[in-house]
Nucleic acid binder design. Structure first.
Length: 503
RNA sequence: GGUAUCGUGGCCGAGGGGUUAGGCACAGGUCUGCAAAACCUGCUACAGCGGUUCGAAUCCGCUCGAUACCUCCA
């Protein structure tokens, strides 16, 4: 597929509007996404963001771009309210080495990303693996006059940066520096070392008891939270690259400070397009670890929670996410998931039926029918949806409508001659591409059938039932159907014989 | 308090000046040994009040409500 066939538009937080996407280098995309801080189990909100960017990554590749997707692992420098490093705190609480904590939750994070069937990024750098780069960046910032040292810590001079680069600070998050300072909730925190409350640390001197520390020209200490992303995006994608993404809640201060650091270090803006995913809500409130309003993916998958009526599988949850646009908040509810479960199963079943369809060229009467045109229009609609800021909801709606044609065809409610064989072939290809390559959905029903044993057994059973039905032996026929239902297999009788699905 | 976003039918959720979103649920129908599935039909909504316009759910203003951010968060 040629990228020129698509005029991809995306919503750029930097401009506050949708823009045509123009990569720096024809055919190539550099994308950086802020990854998780690995001090605790991932929660669903994280998952939504990474699923969203996974689909963006997949789609960019699908339409022909060569993408370098960098997503970091934050394993140092992220402070809690009381000033303790998140990693160090996690380690102290669990009596582990900080690296054990990081390793444990990194593995957990990767497992979860696999469960959601997301692709691994091209590069997944760790903050602790890039201390020299971060120290170098602090030095660059100091050299450009935007950093100052105070008792071994180094701070970014936001006021000066704002003065010399009017409008640069606050552009991304839509803030005005002066208002920010005046209205900030509690700017009276112990920040005596800073010249100005808006300044932020880029290097922090270790205090007694700190365990994650490195030597630097200023002190033994550790880098500031925002610095890692600036340093690692520069290292792997260059000083200026195409797309920078992350959750909406990182827009300020994290991303704003990132921009300032990059500009402060190299004099140029880091990313041309900033993409922000919206929050996953639970009970109409932001899902958040810190205020207890969250549900773990594990509990959602197992059904062991007080919030949902039953267990929901990973692909159902992913499908639920796809039903909404990534820039909208999404409220996780039992009803919503129930609807998603039905929708997901139907879509997968439709795909299975479609892939089994054998178009018969002899049925085709040679003319282009309304049905052909309708199906081709729906394919265009699905692509148009994705081209318009990755609108999975639109694409999904188009797939559902395509699915309606598939069933009509299978049920002989429309005649095979109404659809040209090449249209069927195209439908088969595109439908499957959307489900597997673009959305990254897996058919969970077939997951335990890798060697075909179940298929073989089912064929035999349905064969016996068919024979019984031909002899109008309803008790046997119904016994088979009820027995299968008891183990979660639904038998569906159609015009062309019976099929089955596993719930 | 400041800033932003949003308020869509029973539920979830797209869209965004005139033309069906889609899914789920519900009702009726077709098919079927029965059922399920599938298909068809119905339910046609945009918080409230003003304004702009030939025309507004869509643009503007105000009101109400919700959410998010304002140096912990994806």
């Amino acid at each position: 597929m040629n990228t020129t066939e698509h005029n991809l538009k995306l919503y750029n937080s930097l401009k506050g509007q949708k823009e045509a996407f123009k990569p720096l280098h024809e055919g190539h995309v550099g994308m950086y996404v802020c990854g998780p801080t690995v001090y605790y189990d991932v929660h669903l909100g994280n998952c939504r963001t990474f699923v969203s960017f996974d689909i963006i990554y997949r789609y960019l590749q699908h339409i022909g771009y060569q993408v370098r997707y960098v997503r970091n692992i934050t394993d140092v420098g992220h402070l809690t309210d009381d000033g303790e490093d998140r990693m160090a705190k996690g380690a102290r609480v669990a009596q582990l080495e900080p690296m054990e904590v990081a390793q444990k939750y990194t593995v957990g994070f990767h497992d979860m990303m696999r469960i959601f069937n997301t692709l691994p990024p091209s590069i997944e750098p760790r903050a602790t693996g890039h201390i020299p780069e971060q120290i170098q960046m602090v030095q660059d910032i100091i050299e450009h006059g935007y950093g100052y040292e105070r008792n071994g810590s180094v701070y970014f001079n936001v006021r000066k940066f704002d003065r010399e680069n009017p409008g640069a600070y606050g552009k991304l998050s839509g803030r005005v520096l002066d208002e920010l300072l005046a209205e900030s909730r509690d700017n009276l925190k112990s920040q005596d070392e800073k010249n100005d409350p808006a300044d932020f640390a880029i290097w922090m001197k270790a205090r007694p008891g700190d365990i994650m520390v490195w030597k630097s020209p200023w002190s033994v200490g550790f880098p500031g939270w925002h610095l890692e992303c600036s340093a690692m995006s520069t290292k792997y994608l260059g000083q200026t690259f195409d797309i920078h993404g992350g959750g909406n809640d990182l827009k300020f201060p994290h991303h704003e400070n990132e921009v300032a650091q990059n500009m402060g270090a190299c004099g140029c803006a880091p990313a041309n397009y900033w993409l922000h995913t919206n929050m996953l809500l639970l009970n109409s409130k932001k899902m958040s670890k810190s205020d207890g309003n969250f549900i773990t993916p594990q509990d959602l998958f197992s059904g062991e929670n007080d919030l949902m009526s039953k267990a929901y599988s990973p692909m159902v949850v992913k499908f639920f996410m796809l039903m909404a646009h990534y820039r909208s908040t999404l409220d996780l509810t039992d009803d919503g998931l129930l609807a998603a479960e039905k929708g997901y199963r139907k879509l997968m079943e439709t795909n299975k039926l479609l892939q089994q369809l054998q178009p018969d060229a002899r049925d085709f009467d040679g003319s282009e029918s309304d049905t052909d045109r309708a199906i081709l229009a729906l394919i265009d609609e699905a692509y148009a949806g994705m081209d318009d800021d990755f609108n999975t909801a639109i694409a999904l709606a188009a797939l559902n409508e395509m699915g309606s044609y598939v069933h009509k065809l299978v049920n002989k409610q429309i005649d095979a001659s109404e659809i040209a064989p090449w249209v069927i072939e195209r439908l088969k290809t595109i439908f499957n591409l959307f489900i597997t390559d673009i959305f990254g959905l897996r058919d969970e029903a077939g997951a335990d059938n890798a060697d075909g044993t179940v298929d073989g057994l089912m064929e035999l059973i349905l064969d016996i039932r068919k024979a019984a039905r031909e002899q109008k032996d309803w008790p046997t026929s119904d016994k088979i159907r009820d027995g299968l239902a008891a183990v979660g297999i639904a038998v569906k009788d159609g015009k062309e014989g019976s099929s089955w699905t596993k719930n």
